[in-house]
Simulated scan of single mutants.
Amino acid sequence: MDPTKKEYLANGGDHFIVCAADQMELALDEFVDEYGEAPDVYLLAEVMQELPDWRVPETCQYSEQKPVYILI
């Protein structure tokens, strides 16, 4: 994970989207529309290993599914 993005999340940054695998296209479109740039995409499992104290959202932002990816 990019050290800048890791620090951003660790310090409470909130400009990210978590999504289930089947919602990735919607998440990418929304991220670009909202923030005006392409996101870095990471598997949430990897982020959780690097930031064990970070509170992971429990559901996808678009459904009740468990999120798989985070777009930062």
Score class of each variant (00 low, 15 high):
G36Y: 01
A38E: 10
G36T: 00
E64K: 06
K6A: 14
I17E: 03
N11M: 05
E34G: 06
Y42V: 05
Q61I: 11
D33T: 12
L43F: 10
G36D: 07
D14W: 05
R55V: 10
D2Y: 02
K66E: 15
D29K: 15
E25Y: 11
Q65T: 10
I17C: 02
C19W: 12
L44V: 04
Q65I: 11
L28H: 08
N11Y: 11
D40N: 04
K6Q: 13
H15K: 06
G12W: 04
S63N: 04
E50Y: 07
L28V: 03
L51W: 01
H15Q: 12
E64Q: 03
I70V: 11
A20K: 00
M24P: 01
Y35C: 00
V47F: 06
E34I: 08
W54H: 10
S63G: 08
Q65K: 12
I70P: 02
G13I: 07
V47W: 10
M24R: 10
C19P: 06
V41H: 00
V68I: 11
P67N: 07
D33N: 12
I72K: 07
V18C: 03
D33H: 13
A10S: 08
Y69D: 04
E25L: 09
E64I: 04
A21S: 12
M48H: 13
D40Q: 00
L71Y: 02
P3I: 13
